[in-house]
Design a protein around this nucleic acid. Structure first.
Lengths: 228, 228
DNA sequence: CCAAAAGTGTTGGTAGTACACCCATGA
DNA sequence: TCATGGGTGTACTACCAACACTTTTGG
């Protein structure tokens, strides 16, 4: 009754980056081997025997894209028998967020076969990676409205309008500027600094804000919960 | 650089049942082999080469407990290297819901090594199954307030008070009877039947209600979303 | 007639939404 | 001085929470 199992275990990562200019982007690599040679794919690969799944994701990201990530969460495990045309490969997908500096650096390193793509304008993808990506976007949209993970996509200090644009981009709908600001500030984990925004072009520069993570966790323990 | 991978892939299932008498319960099996021989554990086992993860869960549930399930959803994948003391086993955990008839039948089949336990009163569990179970309960609590999956734990027809008690049990807090009923009925996917509840003991019998799944999906498509 | 469970409506508070004008800066 | 983006307050509405008495049935 015992059957030898011949299933491989992989991890894949959907890494999101954001700038107000380029919108919401995702990190892809160009495959060098069959199957799907020269097709764009999510970074990822087989898990090693003695590493945790998170370690595997972080290792693969470093190997394939040179990037290191500051927010990582398990998304879903994809296990349809035919998702890889050769062997049975089950993949645990993660999604992660990087801050604009990491994003900008790699966006310009065009010698590599890693590149950022706007989520509205994706190339054909290998395997079932399109499904994985769709699901990651849905999860991000769902999560960003009840946990303040949006800050992981912004610089440490940012003008308030950046946060607002980020939410509008991710959620795909316009938000009222005044109501949004009231709602966010009400929670009390955003600090206004005295530093002013460097505006390119005209316009009145605004103050920069920063997310106070400690205050957030403290407030959360006291039973305050972020929502929209 | 290519390394032979020696990781086994399993599935585990957290199956919930509910009756107002016995509260929220979970289905466990007593292990017959080492490690953790004679310890209670979640039903589950290794995935076969050509079956999907969902098929594996359903097969294991049938083999080990004789139960078949009517709601099943992936929970999380547990992959810490040391979670199984012998080999590396990564487990994709699912959670499922069964209706009271299935629940009652197996609860009385005490010859088997499968049994139901109230979630407030669990035995020691094998592996990291306690963590998995905790996470499943949290997920159920989170999900039941924005998707009407509670009906999967009730008979096809049920008195309104059953639904109310279920929510109070799962969420662990009292709910106002009138407000709860207003809120639920407002959505329009619950149908009142003319049939009356069979009350054991005294009390005024109430009408039975049933969930209209078609109406629910239709309403959902039109953009109505259930919440609390 | 007593105990148990079900049925039912109103009111007050609060949080959310809609909405428009002025200010600071660079070109 | 014009164009661009930032900053700010109020009024209305709609939803939610709190709350108690009456009815039907079994014992």
């Amino acid at each position: 009754m015992t059957v030898l199992q011949n299933i491989k275990l992989a991890v894949d990562a959907v890494v999101f980056g954001y700038t107000s200019k380029e919108g919401l982007s995702v990190l892809l690599i160009k495959r060098k081997v069959a199957p799907f040679e020269k097709t764009w794919a999510l970074p990822g690969g087989l898990v090693r025997d003695h590493e945790s799944l998170e370690e595997a994701v972080e290792r693969e990201l470093k190997e394939e894209t040179g990037i290191s990530i500051n927010y990582l969460e398990q998304l879903y495990t994809f296990g349809q028998p035919q998702r890889d045309p050769r062997n049975r490969v089950v993949s645990v997908a993660y999604y992660g967020l990087v801050k604009p500096d990491a994003f900008e650096i790699k966006a310009n390193t065009d010698a590599s076969d890693a590149a950022w793509f706007n989520v509205e304008n994706l190339p054909p993808l290998a395997f079932d990676h399109r499904d994985i990506l769709q699901q990651a976007i849905k999860r991000l949209q769902g999560k960003i409205i009840y946990e303040p993970i949006g800050f992981e996509l912004l610089d440490k200090r940012f003008p308030f309008s950046e946060l607002e644009k980020l939410y509008q981009t991710v959620l795909g709908r316009p938000l009222d500027r005044r109501n949004f600001k009231k709602k966010i500030l009400k929670f009390g984990f955003l600090e206004e600094t005295t530093e002013k925004q460097q505006l390119e072009g005209a316009g009145r520069p605004g103050n920069l804000y920063q997310f106070n993570e400690k205050k957030y966790f403290q407030l959360k323990k006291e039973g305050i919960n972020f929502e929209l």
